[in-house]
């Protein structure tokens, strides 16, 4: 009994060392910009860089748009599959898993081939068209997480019976969707949103190949040309991801305790 507990602690310690030590090393290195003392100069340099603000803002906006449009696609789809087409659930599951299997670079080349300037839908002809294409690319990338988060939340409530109950009380589809179903899968929607946010903020391949000024390509650019700022950016990127995960935990806890009337 005691030896198994000791082994468990050793395993945890190895895990913690594996993950934490490089992070501490990166953080420590990011503080050493000024010779002989620890300062936040690298962070100051990053935050005062106009390109950082522009790319960060761009990626934030793209993340928000991806979340909104992703939800508009995923929530009704997951709802409809659960309610009326349960037999095609395995197909939908398979499709939503594809972005995990197909590398982003393959997907983006596919997009470029389909939507280039000489195609039937030349999205890459204009900046706004390319932005739309990038947003849809992000939606594809986040689909496995988004769909699962929403679908799991729907599994927790009896979607079919709630729908029938609302219908028997005279409700039509928009009311059922936005007043009876959506509020009850909010934790799943928010979980999906935070994962999407984290993915979009760090994504490089799609943005670089579509030549858009996103945060991912900026990270790569700084990494290639500067010494201390990349470490500071890595820590910032980690902080964003952790913050998203923290919010994710928070909203999933909300669902368990349910709302208390304000």
């Amino acid at each position: 009994m005691k030896s198994s507990r000791l082994l468990a602690w050793i395993a945890i310690a190895i895990g913690v060392i594996y993950f934490i030590v490089p992070l501490i090393g990166t953080f420590e290195f990011s503080l050493r910009m000024r010779r002989g003392e620890y300062t936040f100069d690298a962070y100051q340099s990053v935050f005062s860089d106009l390109q950082f603000r522009a790319t960060f803002g761009y990626s934030m906006l793209m993340a928000l748009l991806t979340i909104v449009f992703g939800m508009l696609l995923v929530v009704p789809t997951a709802y409809w599959v659960r309610l009326r087409l349960p037999q095609i659930r395995p197909v939908i599951e398979f499709i939503t898993l594809l972005p995990l299997v197909i590398p982003a670079i393959v997907i983006v080349f596919g997009y470029l081939r389909l939507y280039n300037s000489s195609s039937w839908l030349p999205l890459t002809n204009t900046t706004s068209g390319t932005n739309v294409l990038l947003m849809f690319s992000y939606m594809t990338l986040s689909l496995p997480y988004m769909y699962r988060a929403v679908d799991t939340a729907m599994r927790a409530i009896d979607v079919a019976t709630l729908t029938e109950a609302a219908e028997s009380l005279g409700a039509k589809w928009p009311t059922i969707m936005f007043r009876c179903i959506f509020p009850n899968v909010m934790s799943g929607v928010l979980s999906g949103a935070f994962i999407t946010f984290a993915i979009v903020m760090g994504e490089f391949t799609m943005a670089a190949l579509l030549n858009r000024p996103a945060f991912g390509p900026y990270l790569q650019l700084v990494g290639a040309n500067k010494a201390y700022e990349p470490s500071a950016l890595a820590i910032i990127a980690f902080a964003i991801t952790w913050l998203s995960m923290g919010f994710l935990q928070l909203v999933s806890r909300f669902q368990k305790t349910a709302p208390l009337k304000a």
Partner: peptide
Amino acid sequence: NQRNIGMVFQAYALF
């Protein structure tokens, strides 16, 4: 939703 028929379900189905 046009029938004005009330229904109570086995699983309560409260929102």
